[in-house]
Design a protein around this nucleic acid. Structure first.
Lengths: 200, 200
DNA sequence: CTTAAATCGAACAGCATTGTTCGAGTTATT
DNA sequence: AATAACTCGAACAATGCTGTTCGATTTAAG
């Protein structure tokens, strides 16, 4: 009787291991090629294609699971960032952490964009978004960040610059070690209220 | 005898019309869906699929032709922008013009990215890029723009913000009429040298 | 040790795409 | 009006993907 307690259909140990292997393999495969096929992913996971479909009813649901997993890992990392104190310093710390996530998972975002139904991505991005938004709002209230542009725009601008940095690295015009520094300098300047001096 | 002068294989008038119609239709189709099929494009052009392949040997070459055409139109528009005088004002004018192009052709860029061989896009973007780069370099020499970040990074950052604006519009968080204003405010602040005041 | 769960590869059906071929019909050009 | 260029739709082959079914085999769990 596989049902230990009511409702929870307990999977066998090897099944759980394979599921984890598939999600892991899918993460790396989709990060390399957003349109990676299920064959490719199954092979990378060291598993038959049938097994994959045994655990995920469709490619779409697999991509969804991978995306959810990535978001969770991101949330965990971002949750440990100290967002107190001077908003500018806090933003610098947040960028430092966020940047690595964006760089690592941006191709995966592309995969999600043309596999998942519209709106699903923003639904999953909502929580991580809030963290950034809160910090920016606090900075605006304290006069550290400009208020002549909407908070949502500033969030988007920060996102855009990070994505742009990933592109620059891909194009070979930027080295990964300098990225965080450039992003921070650019965003801090962009957030400075008109009439105020840009921090050095 | 269709050969009027040596070498130039003169196409018949209706053929020329159809080619133009195909490129036009492809532009709008690929702008809506970067993975639009040749059937879709042919139908939109009011032309048989065979005719399309009669003029373009492969889907790839059609995408290339569309992209080249778009770049040419863009170059023409940007060539009329006055880039003299205060670098900040000139940049604002350049953004105003560039923005519309980015907004109109960004999906087409996606189509090009996964249809054209790597490097081809940057090859075609080289000329338009120079225009922006020159202006930023002048601004840097005159002390209007920061010099603690590479020119190529600043170019990329401007590009990223414009692309981000297009995303915001797509997501319904931004209206097209405010976009140029937001972009300009953000980029001008981002370009301000550390220690200097952000222009109002 | 017994049983149920999980695995495997091969093979199938279905779908969409690209690019080509054919023959018959239409239209611009001179 | 004669000719060559052009167009059309239908049909074809080749490819690659998704998702499913089959029967045989391995493996975890009580």
């Amino acid at each position: 009787m596989p049902a230990k307690s009511a409702g929870t259909a307990t999977k066998r140990a090897d099944a759980q291991r394979n599921i984890a292997a598939i999600v892991d393999a899918a993460t790396t495969c989709l990060s390399r090629d957003p349109s990676a096929s299920t064959s490719e992913i199954a092979k990378a996971a060291g598993v038959g294609r049938v097994t994959l479909y045994g655990h995920f009813p469709s490619r779409t649901e697999l991509v969804d699971a991978v995306f959810v997993h990535a978001i969770e890992r991101g949330e965990a990392a971002l949750g440990e960032v100290d967002l107190s104190g001077d908003p500018r310093a806090a933003l610098a710390r947040l960028i430092e952490s966020s940047w690595h996530l964006v760089d690592r998972f941006r191709s995966l975002l592309v995969a999600a964009q043309d596999a998942l139904p519209p709106g699903r991505i923003r639904e999953l991005h909502a929580d991580p978004m809030v963290r950034v938004e809160r910090l920016i709002e606090r900075g605006q209230k304290e006069g550290a960040f400009r208020t002549d542009l909407p908070t949502s725009w500033l969030v988007g601008a920060m996102h855009s610059v990070m994505h742009g940095a990933a592109d620059e690295i891909n194009a070979g015009r930027l080295t990964p070690d300098k990225a965080a520094e450039y992003i921070t300098a650019t965003v801090l300047a962009a957030f400075t209220p008109p009439g105020e001096r840009v921090p050095a």
